[in-house]
Design a protein around this nucleic acid. Sequence first.
DNA 1: CATTCATATCTTGCATACAAGATTGAGTGA
DNA 2: TCACTCAATCTTGTATGCAAGATATGAATG
Lengths: 246, 246
Amino acid sequence: MAVASSISTRIINAVLSQKLKPGARLGEQELATLFQCSRTIVREAMVDLAARGIVIVSPRRGWYLPEVNVEMARELYDAREIIETGLLRAFARRKETLDAATLARLRLHLAEQKSALESEDVERRSYLLGDFHVCLAQCLGNQVLASKLRDLTVLTTLFTMRHQTPSDARLSYEEHAAVVDALASGNASEAEHCMCQHLGTWEAKVHLVREHDPLEKLRQALTSPKDLPPQVSRTAGVAKADEGDI
Amino acid sequence: MAVASSISTRIINAVLSQKLKPGARLGEQELATLFQCSRTIVREAMVDLAARGIVIVSPRRGWYLPEVNVEMARELYDAREIIETGLLRAFARRKETLDAATLARLRLHLAEQKSALESEDVERRSYLLGDFHVCLAQCLGNQVLASKLRDLTVLTTLFTMRHQTPSDARLSYEEHAAVVDALASGNASEAEHCMCQHLGTWEAKVHLVREHDPLEKLRQALTSPKDLPPQVSRTAGVAKADEGDI
DNA sequence: CATTCATATCTTGCATACAAGATTGAGTGA
DNA sequence: TCACTCAATCTTGTATGCAAGATATGAATG
């Protein structure tokens, strides 16, 4: 009953909302039953997501959300910093200003973020904080990079999911607002600087994960949750690990 | 007999080698016969390529290589400039130097480009000139961005295919060499500058297409080649148009 | 009791059959 | 001659069936 694109969109949104965790198994028959369609459609959605790096397949075992390790996370944050600051830098060089409608769209997005933050709607909050970056890329006029950035954002969410706290969320919101304020005042270079700093604070946390908890990898390796995704077993079990069972 | 990934790789390489032109139709049964497999496998490859933006599907009509128009080409070149100069900039900021093996890989690639250039092997020349950018991204250490960049490179090839001349190719090679020379001498900022200039010359041509030939769009719109991809009909027929039939 | 091996079961991999939309071209009527 | 209709054909869209690998279970064996 559902088309493949709606399934992949639903999965992406579920990840951004932190409703699906790294290592989660995506069974073909389960999804087919859920969406009332055949496995053919589900497989189409899985192949689509796999091409974008959002799911990985273990032959004859199943489809899984990747366990993003620290090395991969660093690459992802580097990539995002390059793309997002690059977009702002290119915008600044063009010496354009955002038109009123675009600016309104960004302000509306900020307002929604704030609302989700204050109502402590964790799922919506997580979704919006990630989606803001994609929204901004779209507003800056490059749809190609915006779509690539969405996929990167999904993957970074799979990593940060294990570490984000409410105070992190509040800080993120404020840094987002700073970017938009800078753009609104016509100072795109300042916006670039703000964004660089914003992503930098996250990227710094990536390094902290290693330094602050050198046992993390070993603990992860020795944890044995029920569905252990096989080919990434080095980092498996993380989703469970921070739920208090170690 | 073939797996889906080998089919998509073959198609990508064929585009980079300019053996497949924009607007080309990719019939499922044709490919299945060619690769001695079922349509299921072919469809898997098509869905994969579609997720990466390399093919587009016209419902119940078929799969086509996109006709990249000027607006899209500008986005693509902007995206490539952001990613490629961004990678070099990040590398420069890290103050690392390329190790000998990596440098050797780049020099070998340059030698192959030169060889293809001198032997006038057009297909290999085109492939290598595009692949160099992906190779460089890999050498700079970000596999995620390298894979995204490959897809962007395929699409820009679909655009430039109509305009590149032998002298353009020679210039590209020399600009590639300048980038590697700068990296070899430890001056990554200079490499970034070279790359920016290199991509800039191409992006400038994108604008020239419009300015230099204002009738292009009209000519394209009024051209009626045999397989007219329907949903991009505004720019259809370009592949045939520059083969001398107008 | 630990280990190994066989078997049952579950899940994905792939081919194929059929449904349904799109195109083409012949034929018909004005 | 032109426009329109309808059927034949071609191509993709989707479901399903079977093959085959992976895992789990449990009995047999040392």
